[in-house]
């Protein structure tokens, strides 16, 4: 994916796009449709190819054409009978959901502290966070590998070939950026809201859980779901961590499927697997659209 950043689309403001007063509204040029169609074709070619390969009964790369020559569910059937695809799917969903939810919660807590309290070390903490989140976690891949070698020797339950290892790792890696992002959102919630609640006797925990969290929940959802998608696609660390077929995630499992001379033979299988994997992502995308419009007000996406 070209960018990990949430698609911070300032939502369409108001219902009245340039209705011109008095002037003669110029016609919709045919070129607009031509450009849109050309780009749509460019966007669709690889996707049609994947669909065609997934339903291609022969299942090889060499026999796959852009337009399917035949259709069968052979690849999908094989996916669930001859590979651990179902397990990989479960692992991926579990890891992505757990890492997303945990890091959202921990970042929301941190962001609340940075946004609402003044304490010693606040500035230093925020600067440190900014620096740390600029260091991409996978640059430290060697250190992470050695660290988890140490952990695996002591706690096999959260070591290599477990989902927990990746959950902890992804969660830790997302914390810095998410905390910064969310502090920005908390800052846009008026302070008078939580102050009046405090006057009414609410504790800091009540303010956090019953006032702040519900107010930023659309943003939480967008950020969380996007991190979910990013985690589903993460390959580098997962590929090092997971070697046991049963522990693999979709990315690692599907990658292994077309390695070592199986690229041609298993291509249909691979495409069928990718297509099924797209379903939760596309579903989340459709779900996200509503939140992007309602949640990311133009003020909140700045910075």
């Amino acid at each position: 994916m070209a960018t990990p950043i949430p698609p911070a689309v300032p939502h369409p403001t108001g219902p009245s796009p340039s209705r011109r007063r008095g002037g003669v509204a110029h016609r919709v040029g045919w070129w607009r449709h031509a450009v849109a169609l050309l780009c749509a074709v460019f966007a669709l070619i690889p996707i049609v190819f994947v669909v065609s390969a997934a339903f291609n009964p022969r299942g090889t790369l060499g026999s796959t054409t852009l337009w399917p020559s035949g259709a069968g569910l052979e690849n999908f059937r094989k996916l669930f009978t001859s590979t651990d695809y179902g397990r990989w799917f479960g692992n991926s969903l579990l890891i992505s959901a757990a890492a997303g939810a945990l890091s959202m919660f921990a970042s929301a807590c941190g962001a609340y502290a940075f946004s609402r309290f003044r304490f010693r070390g606040r500035r230093a903490g925020m600067t440190g966070l900014l620096l740390v989140q600029m260091f991409p976690q996978f640059l430290a891949v060697v250190a992470i590998y050695l660290m988890f070698t140490w952990i695996t020797a002591r706690y096999p339950g959260i070591g290599f070939n477990t989902s927990w290892a990746l959950i902890l790792l992804y969660m830790g890696g997302a914390l810095g950026a998410n905390t910064w992002l969310m502090k920005g959102f908390f800052d846009t919630v008026p302070k008078s809201l939580d102050e009046s609640a405090k006057v009414d006797g609410a504790s800091h925990a009540q303010v956090f859980f019953t006032i702040m969290l519900p107010l930023v929940s659309p943003v939480l959802a967008v950020t969380g779901l996007l991190s979910f998608i990013g985690t589903m696609n993460e390959f580098l660390l997962a590929n090092i961590f997971l070697t046991d077929p049963e522990a693999k995630t979709l990315a690692v499992g599907l990658y292994g499927m077309i390695q070592e001379g199986n690229r041609d033979a298993n291509f249909g299988l691979f495409c069928a697997g990718s297509l099924l994997m797209a379903i939760p992502i596309v579903a989340l995308f459709l779900y996200l659209q509503r939140f992007i419009v309602s949640g990311l007000t133009s003020g909140a996406v700045k910075g």
């Binding site: 669709l44 690889p46 990315a251 599907l254």
Partner: peptide, 15 residues
């Protein structure tokens, strides 16, 4: 036009 963004990126790279 948004479809490519929604497909699993790592798989599309290999495709």
């Amino acid at each position: 036009l948004i479809l490519p963004y929604a497909m699993p990126a790592f798989a599309m790279l290999m495709v």
